[in-house]
Amino acid sequence: MGFLTSPKWIDVENWPISWEIGGTSWFPFLESIHVIAAAFVVGSILMVDLRLLGIAAVKYSISTLSKELVPWTWGAFVIATITGLGMFITRAASHVVNPAFQWKIALLALAGINMAYFHFRVYKNIAQWDDAAPTPIQLKIVGSLSLLLWSGVMLAGRWIGHII
């Protein structure tokens, strides 16, 4: 019995809270909050990505821009995660074997790695490029990857509903 096909996922679906969400208007309510929060996550990241590409907000230093947006991105991410988990538990067993869901989790992980690489590696040399208007290639790669990965997360996330 594999991890993804474990009957434990069925138990999750049978939690009283899962039934409560799945059988009431709680589900569409959580879903609409999820979409708004996710749009906010991507919208705020998009602004930083476009700055990394040297396309937008070039008047602002990269550190100021990202420092001021990060709390909002994380706040929205927490809301998206909570509402997402709320929806997940109503159909846990089907979601874990849903290819779109699996893609979404994988792309989320890659987007996280890309962000971590930016913050822990690239950020060390911040003094060299913080105010740069045509940005160095390394930043352009990180920014483009972020744009692609987050769009992919959205696409996979939206695709979940077409498979389930």
Partner: peptide, 27 residues
């Protein structure tokens, strides 16, 4: 193939820009 979810994603990306532009400005 995949047109409905792709178009829906384009639509949600538009909403992301709404959040990152006018809603952020409002905040």
């Amino acid at each position: 193939p995949g047109f409905p979810p792709i178009i829906q994603t384009v639509h949600i990306l538009g909403i992301a820009v709404v959040m990152g532009s006018v809603v952020l400005l409002d905040l």
